[in-house]
């Protein structure tokens, strides 16, 4: 009876949590995150396409450079680039078996994300003080929609990294490889969020 129960539990175990599936070459979470990122590419792709259509169809289009807070956006650009470095360092340290440094770099990534959001808050506050709202113009509607959606993704990253920094880190004791894989997956998401900003910055603030 006990042997039967043990066998059933073994059958219920989800395969390919740590090791890649031979036919796809990916473990479950990595396949999942790439499917999710594919949907994200479509979402942001649609917004960028809308921007191009609105801009090419408009007789005049304001230049973000002349009134948006470019210095703050520049700081945010380098903050996000730094966060992509810290998340890779976190993953690399975990792969090498160093939880202490891994968690430290996750905390660094988290800090960068929070700095980005605080800066974005200052930027929005300035825009509202100048009475520039989404209803003001097509440009401002696009600006608030795209940077707002991107900001929500950064906030999502904050939640994910907070989880892996504190309660999620317990997995390190029971399944190191799986925890390291989870950080890799979170890092892939984070790189995508950073990549979106790399396109948003010149599109909205310079051109």
């Amino acid at each position: 009876m006990e042997a039967h129960a043990h066998g059933a539990a073994h059958e219920l175990q989800i395969p390919y949590n740590v090791h890649p599936r031979p036919d796809t070459g990916l473990y479950n979470a990595k396949l999942g995150i790439w499917l999710f990122l594919a949907s994200e590419v479509m979402l942001f792709g649609a917004l960028f396409s809308s921007l191009i259509l609105l801009r090419t169809g408009a007789p005049t289009w304001p230049r973000g450079w002349t009134f948006l807070n470019v210095p703050l956006a520049t700081v945010n650009t380098f903050v996000l680039i730094a966060s992509s470095v810290t998340v890779v360092l976190a993953w690399a340290n975990l792969r090498l078996g160093n939880l202490k440094w891994g968690r430290l770099f996750i905390a660094g990534t988290l800090l960068c994300a929070v700095i980005f959001l605080v800066n974005k808050g200052f930027e929005y506050h300035h825009e509202f003080e100048m009475h520039r709202y989404p209803r003001t113009s097509n440009f401002m509607a696009v600006y608030f929609t795209m940077t707002g959606l991107h900001g929500l993704h950064v906030l999502g990253g904050v939640v994910v990294f907070l989880y892996f920094l504190f309660p999620g880190a317990k997995m390190w004791k029971t399944d190191r490889a799986r925890y390291t894989n989870r950080i890799e997956v979170a890092g892939l998401y984070w790189h995508f969020v950073d990549l979106v900003w790399i396109f948003l910055f010149p599109t909205l603030y310079l051109l």
Binding site: V87, H191, I198
Partner: peptide, 12 residues
């Protein structure tokens, strides 16, 4: 993540 990071830094 390794390859994505290389692509990201190159784009930066």
């Amino acid at each position: 993540l390794r390859i994505f990071h290389v692509i990201f830094i190159t784009l930066c």
